[in-house]
Design a protein around this nucleic acid. Structure first.
Length: 351
DNA sequence: AACAAACCCAACCGCATAAGT
DNA sequence: AACTTATGCGGTTGGGTTTGT
């Protein structure tokens, strides 16, 4: 049994709103307010519309002080930065942009901003690839990560298979995260700093398994000059050893399963797009190779963040994304992160 | 000029959750 | 506590508009 419909669909008008309907709704709300009951509103006004539809029309279009179109560069920055941080939580993003609706921002992101970003990345990558083709081929020395040259000519980094079996699945979790590529994506998605606790986890198996990054903040931080997400520190800060949250750090819960699954829900970030950005930036891959495999273009220097002086696409992207000024920005991010982390813990069955 | 493809955005849909009983 | 209902949210769709051929 599904939920009962909120209105009689047969007697409800759908589709675009006429100016008359707009005027009726606007006049009524301006004079009487919504009355806290959208369902009853259309009947009071004499509109053959669903209450839900009225609410949406008011919020997205008729409400005073709404801006339509003409997003400024500053707004672009804010949207990008927030999206990178919290994903497609449009209502939260919209709350930071006065006069903008979640729908508006969502549409703007999907139709323009996303393409703007990806287009920029592609262009830069192509230009760089053309000029660096020679250098790249020389870098492929015997001790570097093998690169698979795909038919389309794009270099795809080869990720060694882990010895550790991928953990069991979780309720409602599909299989797409249960492979190595997805794990990498999740790390990228996380983009945060792994704590020392995590560094000691059993995945540091030099034989063949993936060595999870001690600090994977570099690429993401160039996107977003913010405090790293330190989820494992967050977990370990819950001191009691029998605290269920701390079990995330123990063998009782497989980090790769519970932990990574927890991470996976943190941002809701569209992995494919981010991954494309990552793959389109040889520097970031080089940095990763350098840091975690001891090879690459940084002469083996593997500590500390990537120099902020280096002129990379990531820097450029970072400058594009970093907001000039956002009210309560960090507090908001922190709040959302914690909320998401708790959501995930609840999802895993913790109280 | 005619048509097709791509783009854009308002509106809809269904789910999750808060609020009320 | 259990159930019902309203609200809020994010994903998706449909149709109008613009651009390309």
């Amino acid at each position: 049994m599904g939920r009962a419909p909120c209105c009689d669909k047969a007697n409800v008008k759908k589709g675009p709103w006429s100016p008359e309907e707009d005027a009726k709704l606007k006049d009524y709300i301006e004079q009487h307010g919504t009355g806290g009951n959208w369902i009853a509103l259309p009947q009071k006004i004499g509109l053959k519309r669903c209450g839900k539809s009225c609410r949406l029309r008011w919020l997205n279009y008729l409400r005073p002080n709404l801006k339509h179109g003409g997003f400024s560069e500053e707004e672009d920055h804010m949207i990008c930065n927030l999206y990178m941080s919290i994903g497609s939580r449009w209502s939260i993003i919209a709350a930071q942009l006065p006069g903008r609706t979640d729908n508006d921002i969502k549409n703007y992101w999907n139709t323009k901003l996303k393409k703007k970003l990806l287009g920029k990345q592609r262009k830069e990558h192509q230009a760089r690839r053309a000029s660096n083709l020679k250098q790249d081929s020389m870098k492929k020395s015997s001790n570097s990560i093998p690169l698979v040259i795909a038919d389309h000519g794009i270099q795809t980094p080869y990720w060694p298979e882990p010895l550790m079996p991928i953990s069991t699945s979780y309720p409602n979790q599909d299989n797409r995260h249960n492979d190595h590529a997805s794990l990498r994506k999740l790390l990228i998605k996380l983009g945060g700093k792994f704590s020392d606790d995590f560094q000691q986890e059993p995945y540091d198996d030099a034989k063949n398994s993936l060595q999870l990054p001690i600090e994977f903040s570099s690429t993401y931080q160039q996107f977003n000059d913010q405090k790293s997400i330190n989820l494992f520190s967050f977990s370990s800060s819950m001191s009691s050893s029998d605290n269920p949250y701390s079990k995330l750090l123990s063998n009782e819960y497989n980090i790769e399963g519970a932990g990574m699954h927890m991470l996976q829900g943190l941002n809701g970030f569209p992995v494919d797009e981010f991954d494309e950005m990552i793959c389109n930036n040889p520097e970031s891959l080089d940095e990763f190779k350098c840091r975690h495999y001891g090879v690459g273009t940084n002469n083996g220097v593997s500590s500390g963040p990537i120099s902020t002086e280096s002129t990379t696409a990531w820097d450029d992207m970072g400058s594009f994304i970093n907001p000039p000024n956002i009210t309560n920005y960090e507090a908001l991010q922190q709040e959302v992160r914690e909320e998401c982390a708790f959501d995930q813990l609840r999802y895993l069955g913790f109280p």
